[in-house]
Amino acid sequence: MSGYNLIWVFIAGIIASAAGYVLTPKGNNQTVIRTIIIMTIACCYMSWAITYLAQLHPLIFPKKTGLRPHLE
């Protein structure tokens, strides 16, 4: 686990967003469809990145409670 995964997934998200932008079918709702595709990818990336960073650098570390002292 490293911080470089954030960069690689960000680049993959940019590529997916560009592909969605280019491959959107023409029509009355083309702008709406493009917006939905790009916003979905951006929100999924942000959710994943926040969860990943929270696990990579936790703010609160677990403490031993002494429930099983024979195993400590």
Results as ranks from 00 to 15, higher is better:
W8R: 15
A42K: 12
I14V: 10
W8K: 15
S17G: 12
T35P: 00
T40P: 02
Y21F: 10
K26S: 05
Y21S: 04
I15E: 01
I38M: 09
G27P: 04
A12V: 05
I33R: 12
M39T: 15
I37D: 04
A19I: 03
Q30A: 08
N28K: 13
A18C: 06
I15L: 06
G27K: 02
R34D: 03
W8C: 13
V32F: 11
M39N: 13
A16T: 07
R34C: 12
I41C: 07
V32W: 10
I33S: 07
M39D: 12
I14L: 12
I37Q: 04
M39A: 14
Q30D: 13
I33H: 04
I11Q: 04
N28E: 14
I41N: 02
A18S: 06
Q30R: 12
I36L: 06
F10N: 05
I14K: 11
N29C: 07
W8Q: 15
Y21M: 05
V32P: 02
G27W: 02
G20V: 02
C43L: 15
A16C: 01
K26P: 01
V22P: 00
L23R: 11
S17P: 03
C43D: 12
I36N: 01
G20L: 01
I14Q: 08
M39Y: 13
I41E: 06
I15K: 01
I41H: 03
A12T: 01
L23M: 13
G20N: 02
T35H: 09
V32K: 12
A12S: 09
A16V: 02
K26M: 03
I36E: 03
G20T: 04
K26L: 04
S17L: 03
I14A: 08
T35W: 11
I38K: 06
N29S: 11
A42N: 12
K26T: 03
I38W: 05
W8D: 15
F10T: 10
C44G: 09
I14W: 09
T40V: 09
R34M: 14
A19F: 00
V9R: 15
I38G: 02
F10R: 13
A42Q: 11
M39G: 05
C44P: 05
A18V: 09
N29T: 13
I41T: 07
T40M: 10
T35K: 12
S17H: 02
S17N: 03
